[in-house]
Write a protein that binds this DNA or RNA. Sequence first.
DNA 1: AAATACTATTTCGTATAGTATTTTGACGTC
DNA 2: GACGTCAAAATACTATACGAAATAGTATTT
Lengths: 253, 253
Amino acid sequence: MPRKVQPVAQGPRRSVLSDETYDMVKAMILTHEIAPGAKVNIDALALKLGVSQTPIREALARLESDGLIAKEALKGYSTTKLLTVKQFNDLFQFRLLIEPWAAEQSAKQIDAVGIAALNAEMQSAKTALKLSESEQVQAFIEHDARFHSLITRISGNESVTESFERTHCHLHLFRLFLAAQSHLLDDKPKDKFVEDLFYRYYQTGSGQLTIKEHEAIRSAICSGDDKGAKAAMQKHIQSSLDRFSPAAKALNK
Amino acid sequence: MPRKVQPVAQGPRRSVLSDETYDMVKAMILTHEIAPGAKVNIDALALKLGVSQTPIREALARLESDGLIAKEALKGYSTTKLLTVKQFNDLFQFRLLIEPWAAEQSAKQIDAVGIAALNAEMQSAKTALKLSESEQVQAFIEHDARFHSLITRISGNESVTESFERTHCHLHLFRLFLAAQSHLLDDKPKDKFVEDLFYRYYQTGSGQLTIKEHEAIRSAICSGDDKGAKAAMQKHIQSSLDRFSPAAKALNK
DNA sequence: AAATACTATTTCGTATAGTATTTTGACGTC
DNA sequence: GACGTCAAAATACTATACGAAATAGTATTT
């Protein structure tokens, strides 16, 4: 028995190990520390994270429900592959169904708290512009995730909020981005255009474009312009679909 | 080629225990064998199902992701409560966002396989009419679940299909129904109207109404009438919302 | 080369023990 | 009686070891 020399005289642990494990494994998937489509060995993972199998099993079960990990009976777990072009398009079509509606609803019932939250989020996006290029990408995807999530929450509809969260769309986008980046690091000049596609839309220019579109949405919502908010959101999602689509195609060649 | 020496004899039920456990616990929630909001003791459940804790924990972790079970750190699992009126309305609003679209898409790309599946499902609904009243309710909810699920699948959009499945809307409706039924069994005459509300709409008359609405949707989809399919689906969901809504209110008084 | 047999690895489930935390309930104080 | 304290019981959580069964890989036979 590991005698556990002084587990630090801290207060009671707020969460449980299986929850922390869930977050850690999710982060490992996000960052390609576990590559898309790779096998996930429970023993190895337990060893790596310094925990026993039990919390790992629970975490993987939840991640499977999330669609981030696939389970094959008697063959074990593996991470899901990158989105195919079809899944990518399906995902954006789905977003087009619920997010414009969410923006419309938000405009109809926005209050001071919501306005403050939206303003704060836009502020964080603008400060992200000051980061270096590589950090900007991550910062912008995170801002984008928070911004869209925030609007579904302001809409007030639990089902809509949950179903949006479950798509993990920004996690998938980030994985696609990382895949494109690693293509670059390979000495494969033929994939040069992937660089263009992804960087072009995630770099400063695109960051400012995203901010501009987000600002239009925020403005419409905060002024109670429901139809305008709906239209702005629809345009924004369509716009990012158009931006990403060629890159997604390239990666799924 | 694997040897496969006829394991058919006693049939090793051991496919993957944790999956079977998941289904069993889900069924127990559906049937109120575990009441809404009740604590779920892992030891007791393991004992009851005759398995060890491991598969139980995995099943509960997945059910938590499904929103059928809630987990509180260091306090354990418990089933989620019945839908509140707000959650009920949110759920139907969500369905109104995605299902009419799914019907529309289905009409645009219906093929022979889809037509056959829709026809078969309608047939099963009609045979359900021959069952006794109590059996009819369950049969109709199951038909309803399959019918709507089928259409999201025919629409071809994975995100839409998955997000619809995850709502478990028919499971929640069935739990509401069972709750109403048990209200009846209590000697509480004041809840008499709950009986009316639920039975009125699930009995023969409502069954035939549901069939009629489903038939309109099927017909529009199979004939490629996309706008008609969308309208019919919208009308159907709105109609069932109107039917259920007073009952849901009564239960959440 | 194809089918079979054997071995190694891995998954899946069980059992058990130990720790951490909550819950319970008795007890005493105000 | 209301309220807080504190120990005991119950329960949740984690660790670990073991074994059965399936898969995967390798060797052998036909």
